[in-house]
Amino acid sequence: MTSCHIAEEHIQKVAIFGGTHGNELTGVFLVKHWLENGAEIQRTGLEVKPFITNPRAVKKCTRYIDCDLNRIFDLENLGKKMSEDLPYEVRRAQEINHLFGPKDSEDSYDIIFDLHNTTSNMGCTLILEDSRNNFLIQMFHYIKTSLAPLPCYVYLIEHPSLKYATTRSIAKYPVGIEVGPQPQGVLRADILDQMRKMIKHALDFIHHFNEGKEFPPCAIEVYKIIEKVDYPRDENGEIAAIIHPNLQDQDWKPLHPGDPMFLTLDGKTIPLGGDCTVYPVFVNEAAYYEKKEAFAKTTKLTLNAKSIRCCLH
Results as ranks from 00 to 15, higher is better:
2 T>Y: 09
2 T>V: 07
3 S>D: 15
4 C>E: 15
4 C>A: 14
5 H>I: 11
5 H>W: 10
5 H>S: 14
6 I>Y: 13
9 E>K: 15
9 E>W: 06
9 E>R: 15
10 H>R: 15
10 H>G: 12
11 I>G: 02
12 Q>M: 06
13 K>A: 02
15 A>S: 01
17 F>E: 02
19 G>W: 02
19 G>Q: 02
22 G>I: 08
24 E>C: 10
24 E>Y: 02
25 L>R: 15
25 L>F: 08
26 T>Y: 02
27 G>A: 08
27 G>H: 03
28 V>K: 09
29 F>K: 15
31 V>Q: 04
32 K>D: 09
32 K>W: 00
32 K>S: 10
32 K>F: 03
36 E>K: 13
37 N>Q: 09
37 N>T: 07
37 N>G: 06
39 A>E: 14
39 A>I: 11
39 A>W: 10
40 E>R: 04
41 I>L: 13
41 I>W: 04
43 R>V: 00
43 R>M: 01
45 G>D: 08
46 L>E: 05
46 L>P: 04
49 K>N: 09
49 K>F: 09
49 K>W: 06
49 K>S: 10
52 I>Y: 00
52 I>L: 14
53 T>S: 14
53 T>E: 02
56 R>A: 14
56 R>V: 12
58 V>A: 11
59 K>T: 12
59 K>F: 09
59 K>P: 05
61 C>A: 13
62 T>K: 14
63 R>A: 12
63 R>C: 07
63 R>N: 09
65 I>F: 08
65 I>Q: 08
66 D>G: 08
67 C>H: 11
68 D>L: 00
68 D>I: 03
69 L>I: 12
70 N>W: 02
70 N>V: 07
73 F>W: 11
75 L>T: 14
75 L>Y: 13
76 E>D: 13
80 K>N: 13
81 K>Q: 13
82 M>T: 13
83 S>R: 13
83 S>G: 13
84 E>P: 14
86 L>M: 14
87 P>V: 09
87 P>G: 11
91 R>L: 14
92 R>P: 06
92 R>G: 07
94 Q>S: 12
96 I>Y: 06
96 I>L: 13
96 I>A: 06
96 I>P: 06
98 H>W: 11
99 L>Y: 13
99 L>Q: 12
100 F>I: 07
101 G>T: 06
102 P>Y: 09
102 P>E: 10
103 K>D: 09
104 D>S: 13
107 D>M: 12
107 D>P: 13
108 S>D: 08
109 Y>F: 12
110 D>Q: 08
114 D>I: 02
115 L>W: 01
115 L>P: 00
118 T>E: 01
119 T>I: 04
120 S>T: 07
121 N>F: 01
124 C>E: 05
124 C>P: 10
125 T>N: 03
126 L>E: 06
128 L>H: 05
130 D>W: 00
132 R>N: 14
134 N>H: 14
135 F>C: 03
136 L>C: 06
137 I>Q: 00
137 I>C: 00
139 M>Q: 03
143 I>A: 01
143 I>L: 02
144 K>H: 01
147 L>Q: 02
148 A>S: 12
148 A>K: 10
148 A>P: 01
151 P>S: 08
151 P>I: 01
152 C>L: 09
153 Y>L: 06
156 L>C: 14
156 L>A: 06
156 L>D: 00
157 I>L: 13
157 I>G: 15
158 E>K: 01
158 E>Y: 02
159 H>P: 14
161 S>L: 09
163 K>W: 08
165 A>E: 14
165 A>L: 09
166 T>E: 11
167 T>W: 09
171 A>E: 00
174 P>L: 10
175 V>E: 02
176 G>D: 01
177 I>Q: 05
177 I>M: 13
178 E>D: 09
180 G>H: 02
181 P>T: 04
181 P>M: 00
183 P>R: 01
183 P>F: 05
184 Q>C: 11
190 D>M: 00
191 I>Q: 05
191 I>K: 03
193 D>C: 11
194 Q>G: 10
195 M>T: 13
197 K>H: 10
198 M>E: 04
200 K>G: 13
202 A>T: 00
205 F>V: 05
205 F>R: 04
207 H>C: 14
207 H>R: 11
208 H>S: 14
212 G>Y: 00
213 K>S: 08
214 E>F: 09
215 F>P: 05
215 F>G: 00
219 A>V: 09
219 A>Q: 14
220 I>E: 02
223 Y>I: 04
224 K>F: 05
224 K>G: 01
225 I>Q: 15
225 I>K: 15
227 E>K: 03
228 K>V: 10
229 V>T: 07
229 V>Y: 02
230 D>R: 09
231 Y>D: 00
232 P>L: 01
234 D>R: 08
237 G>F: 01
239 I>C: 08
239 I>M: 08
240 A>G: 09
246 N>M: 10
246 N>S: 13
247 L>Y: 05
250 Q>S: 11
252 W>E: 04
252 W>C: 08
253 K>P: 04
254 P>N: 03
256 H>W: 03
256 H>D: 09
257 P>R: 00
258 G>I: 05
259 D>G: 01
259 D>V: 04
261 M>C: 12
261 M>W: 05
262 F>G: 02
262 F>C: 04
263 L>C: 07
263 L>H: 03
265 L>E: 01
265 L>P: 11
265 L>T: 10
265 L>K: 12
266 D>S: 09
267 G>M: 06
268 K>G: 08
269 T>R: 00
271 P>D: 08
271 P>A: 11
272 L>G: 02
272 L>I: 07
272 L>R: 05
273 G>M: 10
276 C>W: 07
276 C>M: 15
280 P>S: 00
281 V>T: 11
281 V>Y: 03
283 V>S: 06
284 N>E: 00
285 E>D: 15
287 A>T: 14
290 E>Y: 08
292 K>D: 08
292 K>P: 07
294 A>W: 05
294 A>K: 04
295 F>H: 00
296 A>S: 11
297 K>H: 05
300 K>R: 11
301 L>H: 10
302 T>Q: 09
302 T>A: 06
303 L>F: 00
304 N>R: 14
305 A>I: 01
305 A>F: 04
306 K>F: 07
307 S>Q: 10
307 S>Y: 06
310 C>M: 13
310 C>R: 13
311 C>W: 11
313 H>G: 15
